[in-house]
């Protein structure tokens, strides 16, 4: 079943004085439930713009976006908020936890916004934190956690509402390679449990964890290829990284 379908999506930024930036050009793609997709591309190619649209944080200038079969291209703020709340789990490069709140409260947030009663909320948040291995850290504030632990809180938060997709924008960008690998293993596990994962990265060896790579350049899709189980796509940088 299709979770995401983009048809000829454009995103144009109006810079005033009749200057326009076309960040996305005629993007069409579809993603099935249970896929693990990496989106790659050089800086300024439109990855984040695409991510924002996929995550319903932004709407396309033109084109069609069906999420779980529902047209979200012309939804208003409140309808989009609901999709983000129940359909999408975000994992950001900078973790984006609320600094004043402890791990538990951070993980609870999506449930608060979907109106789950407090006791059930706490239960579920605790269980999810245990699942990401932070059962002992529920009352720690973000600044009392390591980078990897913070990202695991963020993953727990992304998972708590059983979303249709998990969107991870450079999830390892702010982590050392060992911690980054742990997080990637974690996403791998989630994928194996049947979650749909969309990963944005510019690192080949990170992208290789995915089963399909969509490369974009100048706002358009350059290639969209599955990765064979054994036949890894290797580039010189990846070789270096692997040797380290």
């Amino acid at each position: 079943m299709r979770v995401i379908e983009l048809v000829k999506v454009n995103k144009v930024y109006d810079m005033g004085a009749e200057v326009q930036v076309q960040a996305l050009k005629e993007i069409s793609l579809s993603i099935e439930r249970g896929e693990y997709v990496a989106i790659m591309g050089p800086s300024g190619s439109g990855k984040t713009t695409l991510m924002n649209i996929l995550g319903c944080l932004d709407t396309p200038t033109s084109g069609l976006y069906l999420f779980d079969g529902v047209n979200v291209s012309d939804m208003d703020d409140n309808e989009l908020a609901k999709i983000r709340n129940q359909g999408i789990g975000f994992v950001f490069q900078t973790f984006n936890l609320i600094p004043r709140s402890d791990a538990l409260h951070n993980v609870e947030l999506p449930l608060i916004y979907s109106g789950v009663p407090a006791s059930e909320r706490k239960d579920r948040a605790k269980k999810t934190l245990e699942m990401v291995g932070l059962g002992e850290r529920v009352h720690h504030k973000p600044n009392e956690l390591s980078g990897g632990q913070r990202q695991r809180v963020a993953i727990a938060r992304a998972l708590i509402n059983n979303p249709s997709i998990i969107l991870a924008d450079e999830p390892t960008g702010n982590l050392d390679s060992k911690t980054g690998d742990e997080i990637m293993l974690f996403l791998e596990e989630l994928y194996k449990k049947g979650n749909t994962i969309i990963l944005v990265t510019h690192e080949e060896y990170i992208a290789e964890h995915a089963k399909r790579i969509i490369r974009i350049r100048d706002g358009g899709i350059e290639s969209d290829l599955p990765i064979a189980k054994n036949g890894k796509v290797k580039s010189p940088q990846v070789m270096e990284k692997v040797q380290v």
């Binding site: 703020d77 409140n78 908020a81 129940q86 936890l97 609320i98 999506p110 916004y113």
Partner: peptide
């Protein structure tokens, strides 16, 4: 930033 995070997690305008 916090407002952005809350919105990403599904907070409505009214919230």
């Amino acid at each position: 930033k916090e407002i952005g995070i809350r919105k990403a997690l599904g907070a409505k305008r009214r919230t």
